[in-house]
Simulated assay, not measured.
Amino acid sequence: MAVLVTGGAGYIGSHTVAALLERGEQLVVVDNLQQGHKAAMLGGVFYEGDLRDGAFLDRVFCENAIDAVIHFAANSLVGESMKDPGKYYHNNVYGTLCLLEKMNEHGVQRIVFSSTAATYGEPEEVPIKESDRTLPTNAYGETKLAMERMMNWFDVAHGMKYVSLRYFNAAGAYAGGKIGEDHNPETHLVPIVLQTALGKRPHISVFGDDYGTPDGTCIRDYIHVSDLADAHILAVDRLRKGGDSGIFNLGNGTGYSVKEVIECARRVTGRAIPMVVEARRAGDPAVLVASSERARSELGWTPSRDGLEDIIRSAWEWHLANPDGYGDK
């Protein structure tokens, strides 16, 4: 039996594909290559296509013996989602509906969903727990929450079991520098800092240094992308063993400030990395950190690459070897 990975040519998807291949899983990868990269896929049977194409999905399910799905395929830029929410509802929500309907038609009853801690919105407490209020502050987070709720009702109606994994910032790269992070446009802090170290950007912008944090800059969760991949695989194992549906946060439990990330990158790269403080961005909370106690106790997830220096060093190795990313966009 095979695992279907949607969005498997993307950043976290490709790292999950790599981890699944390492343990000998049969893999089917679906990606429309809107943001993904064929060069990021280290193996598996690849289908280029869109989840909203019913005939395409029928072919994927008919040609392969699939017993579980890991669902990454989605648009994920917060700013863009506020300017074009229709795009996010059509691709993320409708695309997921199409996938769930075809899974049900073809008798595939297990799905692991790559969600986001943006489903919580402004946190009432830190670290954030799964039982906390969900009140997204952007269309991206709202669509991910809608996708989770849809999975719940497919479970109620059809017995389709799901695990939803909520997390903030993936960072780092696969050991050995084979694959890494390449978005267009790039919005994530770690690759932007490293692009600055490479001279691709004149400076790194820090949006506000007057927050109520130790150094005045925002604090965020950063998790090594390979640790996230491990969590998705553990979630597949849970469902294969007959485990119930559930929602789990993934976090490092403490978080790092923007200045801490920049200083760490300076140490790792040995480069100056100019920094410019700019005005705060609207809607940026001071601290966003998720509690992962439930994932650790119920999934057995123990991140092994949770040091900031390890995360940045692995990312730097890939960026040094691939200063222009995959070069296909």
Score class of each variant (00 low, 15 high):
A73L: 03
N75C: 11
L77W: 06
L77Y: 10
L77G: 01
G79L: 13
G79V: 10
M82F: 06
M82K: 04
K83I: 03
D84R: 15
P85L: 02
K87I: 02
Y89Q: 04
N92D: 11
Y94G: 00
Y94V: 15
Y94T: 11
L97V: 08
L97R: 06
L100F: 14
L100R: 01
E101R: 14
E105N: 06
H106F: 14
H106E: 02
H106T: 02
G107P: 10
R110Q: 13
V112I: 09
F113A: 00
S114P: 03
S114Y: 04
A117T: 01
T119K: 02
T119S: 13
Y120F: 15
P123E: 07
P123H: 00
P123Q: 04
P123C: 01
P127H: 06
I128T: 13
K129L: 10
K129Q: 06
R133L: 13
T134Q: 14
N138F: 09
A139L: 02
Y140K: 03
E142W: 01
E142Q: 11
K144N: 08
K144Q: 10
E148C: 12
M150P: 06
N152M: 09
N152Q: 15
W153M: 14
W153T: 15
F154Y: 15
D155C: 10
V156K: 13
H158S: 10
G159P: 01
G159K: 00
K161C: 12
L165K: 00
L165G: 05
R166T: 09
F168C: 04
F168D: 03
A173E: 05
